[in-house]
Simulated scan of single mutants.
Amino acid sequence: MSKEARYGLLYSEYEYSSYVRIQSEKCCIIVACFPILAMIFCILYSVLFNFEGAVYTHCDVYNWLPSISAAIGSFSPQREVWQSAVTIQAIPRFFYAFQYLQFHYSLLYPHDFWIAQVAFFLSMVENIALILLSFFVSSQYYSVHKKAFITFIISSEVYMILTCILQSRFKKQFRISLKWKKRFLTTNLIFIVVAVYFFMRHNSFCEPYVYSLFALAEYIVVFSNMAFHSTAFFDFQNKDFVIYKHGFTLTER
């Protein structure tokens, strides 16, 4: 073997060993599991070990479920578990936002690409707002937490609507993904209305259990949002998430 061929072989082996390749479907599941499992842990741990403090409200009436803000931000180790999960999933979420932008660019440009750009911007805002409301907890930074939560809700709702509009233009290509996106979006919108109703009723009448019904509706809002983002499983099938020494990308399998 010549010196050039030997060098080329060694170089190829070095290149092959310098990256990690993960199936995109598995990556989506892993990323989705962090906030889902962290949320379940925070709720259960709060009910089992911090029940009185977690369900307490200014009305001082009996409740049996904590709000999400209380479950993820008022106690330890729940706060640290949730913050760790949000931090871990943040970078992949930003990455998938860029991938969706490129994906929609290839399908839409030059027609209606502005919708994809707005959706991309809202996805970034949603992720940043999630990070802020997770670290600026309501018990210590109520004003910041409240603004971040409202920003998260508005940006996530508009993002989900725009994504469904974009993918409706290509129903055959996104048939399964779009079907589940619409289901999760509908669930999300319905339970936002339900959550607002129970929250206002709780503040107006201070009835027992009403705040728990608000908390339950709030859980469904958050889990349906997570489920919506998990439909990336269908959108990026047959692709691999490749981590290089100096970056990462999605490639065809």
Rank of each mutant, 00 (worst) to 15 (best):
K3D: 05
L10M: 09
S12F: 09
E13N: 09
Y14L: 15
Y14T: 14
Y16D: 15
S24Q: 05
S24C: 07
S24G: 05
C28R: 03
I29E: 04
C33M: 15
C33K: 00
F34T: 11
I36K: 08
I36V: 13
I40M: 03
I40Y: 06
L44P: 05
L44C: 01
L48C: 11
L48P: 04
L48K: 05
G53M: 00
Y56V: 02
C59E: 13
D60W: 12
N63M: 11
S69M: 05
A71P: 11
G73Q: 04
S76C: 08
I88D: 07
I91C: 01
Y96C: 09
F98P: 01
Q102Y: 15
Y105D: 14
Y105M: 13
S106K: 12
Y109Q: 13
F113T: 05
A116Y: 03
A119G: 06
A119M: 07
S123R: 11
N127T: 15
I128P: 08
L130P: 00
F135G: 03
F136I: 15
S138C: 12
Y142S: 13
Y142I: 11
S143R: 01
K147V: 07
K147L: 03
V158W: 13
L162N: 12
L166C: 06
S168P: 00
S168A: 14
F170D: 13
K172G: 12
K172P: 06
Q173D: 11
F174E: 09
W180M: 02
T186P: 08
L189N: 04
I190W: 08
Y197E: 14
F199V: 06
N203C: 12
N203T: 08
L213F: 04
F214R: 01
F214G: 04
L216T: 06
L216A: 15
E218Q: 00
V222L: 08
V222I: 11
S224E: 04
M226P: 02
A227I: 03
F228N: 07
H229Y: 07
D235Y: 10
I243M: 10
G247E: 10
F248E: 13
T249S: 09
E252T: 06
